[in-house]
Design a protein around this nucleic acid. Structure first.
Lengths: 263, 263
DNA sequence: CGCATCTTTGACCACAGTCAAAGAGCGTGG
DNA sequence: CCACGCTCTTTGACTGTGGTCAAAGATGCG
């Protein structure tokens, strides 16, 4: 699939074009796909959730599967927006990078989350893999045809984008009006109730680094680390190691997410 | 007669009345609406822009017009989300308010801007009028039916929401990663190229207060005021009075929006 | 084991927030 | 017509939260 180079904003701290080679493993396999959809993690998503089996089977004929590896950039800000898709496995970060390298992460995508089409002809965010995974993608015109053919799908897509908008508003509220402690508490609280996979013991594995969290919350690594330490000291969370968090006191965490200092 | 029946139906399932006295002036007038659409400011919008005249005429049968006055709250966060609509005149602010009164403005809506349906059954933001104006509204199920009937409309709606998402991402980037000066410069620069009405002399009338701007940019009134003063001192803008801004040096303003201190 | 990357901690600093007060603009009423 | 009160804006002095800089632990990998 043809992808052009875009010197401007994208190639700052991420390795450039050689990573995009993986894009080529898109493949179409009607029979296989139809079978796969049944137990696809995205089967429960807003997008596919309301589809009936025959609809899904028809739709799956147009789906393309692409695997990605940790560290790989799946979508580059500024590239022609040719596909939309669903994450079926793994985790990605959605980022926007300024000309001077400042970075804002706009969200983390887990299995079942959707990559929607931008309003413009080019992507306005990058998508970088935090863990190996897989995308179920649709070529733009195929998706648009399907949206028109299946009102269920169209409604689901609408809800999906509205949910994304809702998330962005929530993020804006955090960034604009919350303190560092509130932001970190909000982040952990949201992760807990979100699609981040949890182990049976209630321990969450964080696929993102402290730097990623900082870039998501509009803070610095140091501040994020200090807040983690503080939450650990207050016995609100446990940190078996840097990548694992156990939320010991969800109620207190939720309260900290709203007020910062205890109620 | 069918139209009249529809009119009474919608007034029945309209949200509880104590919050919104003004809503009562919704009215349906097929002939009048059809004529009005032709020179409606929203005719150029993403939503209505691609519609052909017959489609528009059909659609207009379901439109409800509601006027609003400065200071009035048109939509309350938490209310059942019964309508979507287009601003046809005036200006509104979209706000989210925390339990403790902290406020984040998520955007300003001018004529032609769309109020889309939320993913949930209830509105997640409030809409407050900054200037007298008018909304062209559609009852939820009517809009959904129309979206399915007219692919043009559906595509337009999709682009509209994607544009809103784009705007929210831009705001998040500002809030998370820009300095006070950059945010104010970005705000003014965006207003200039946006739908905020301008006088022939290139002077913009700001319908929002400094407090509103602060609540939009995640700053305080004092900081916003200081940045305005600084921009005036640097001859980047002129301030004939507090409500009017003339952008004297757009290029410099744009540069300040990205880097804060000169290039 | 050695190097690289990520995380944590500490000391210091600056940008924007807080608190306070004066100035500007505007509608209302005497 | 001006005085009054209200709201909004501006300016000043000071403070504090979170950023910056630096360095020491962890952790993981070849």
């Amino acid at each position: 699939m043809a992808v052009m180079a875009f010197a401007s904003t994208t190639s700052l701290d991420r390795p450039p074009s050689h990573l995009r080679a993986r894009d080529t493993d898109d493949r179409v396999n009607p029979v296989y796909e139809a079978l796969v959809c049944g137990n696809c993690p995205a089967r429960q998503s807003d997008l596919c959730g309301e589809l009936k089996d025959p609809e899904l089977q028809d739709l799956s004929r147009y789906s393309l599967r692409a695997t990605f590896r940790e560290g790989e950039t799946v979508i580059w800000e500024g590239d022609p927006a040719t596909h939309a898709g669903i994450v079926t496995r793994g985790c990605l970060r959605m980022t926007r990078t300024g000309a001077d390298g400042r970075r804002q992460i706009l969200g983390f995508l887990f299995s079942g989350d959707i990559v929607s089409l931008p309003a413009t002809s080019h992507y306005t965010v990058s998508l970088e893999a935090l863990a190996n995974g897989e995308l179920c993608r649709f070529e733009r015109s195929r998706l648009e045809a399907a949206l028109h053919k299946y009102p269920n799908l169209e409604r689901g897509y609408r809800r999906t984008v509205a949910t994304a908008l809702e998330g962005a508003y929530g993020l804006a509220y955090s960034l604009g009006r919350k303190t560092a402690m509130e932001r970190v508490a909000t982040f952990l609280s949201d992760l807990r109730s979100g699609s981040c996979p949890k182990s049976p013991g209630g321990i969450m594995h964080l696929p993102m680094t402290r730097t990623d969290i900082a870039d998501f919350l509009g803070l610095t690594v140091e501040t994020v680390s200090r807040m983690f330490t503080k939450l650990k000291g207050a016995k609100v969370i446990r940190l078996p190691n840097a990548q694992e968090v156990e939320i010991v006191d969800p109620a207190r965490l939720a309260s900290l997410a709203e007020s910062g200092n205890e109620t």
